[in-house]
Amino acid sequence: MDTAARPELETSLIDDLKRGDATAYHRAVREYSPGMLAVARFYLDHSSAEEVVQDCWVTVIDAIQKFEGRSGLKTWLHRIVANRCKNKLRSSNREVATDFSESLEPELADRFNAKGRWDLPPKLQFHESADNLVENGALSDCLDKHLSALPETQRSALMLYEAHQHKSDDVCNILDVSASNLRVLLHRARQKIFLMVETFQETGEC
């Protein structure tokens, strides 16, 4: 159940968490961990990211007592994860490297002529919609494969924005990127998914 879409459910979940209700934690861990992991993966490798998410849940048990609901629970949890990741990066002197200079994927940029017109325009209209995604296991697997191949920065931005439905301001805040850099991250990631769906639709192959 998506508590973020139902404020009264979120309030009652927060009350249960404050009381230390184990069932509420079980439910919250399942609802919020995917997004928390997406945030952590922006900064860290897979196993360190999982470690941070686990540690954060333990922190939450005490920290939730002071949660005043100024932001939503999801945003609050994502900020805790981001802060912990940043501390971890600082202590190991690791930096997150991202290239924000190009707004077009090279594979797409090559499809325009010197005058800026399409040389190789998109041939087909996508008929894959969100509705038949669930039924189309091959497409779903293909999406998984391509999402995991995306640079972490692009994937996290995409996941927080598209799958976890954060507003731009929140994503910038959580991931510590400027609004214009977030636009580049999102656009580059979407182009990759566009190219993937196009190939899938034309050839049936991933």
């Binding site: 995917p34 992991l37 997406a38 993966r41 996508f126 894959e128 919609s129 969100a130 509705d131 995604l133 669930v134 779903s140 999406l143 998984d144 999402l147 995991s148 994937r155 995409l158 996941m159 598209e162 799958a163 976890h164 439905q165 979407r190 998914i193 566009f194 769906v197």
Partner: peptide
């Protein structure tokens, strides 16, 4: 592509 992603909560 963007709405496919919203529906497909990967990761």
């Amino acid at each position: 592509s963007s709405s496919l992603l919203s529906a497909h909560s990967a990761g």
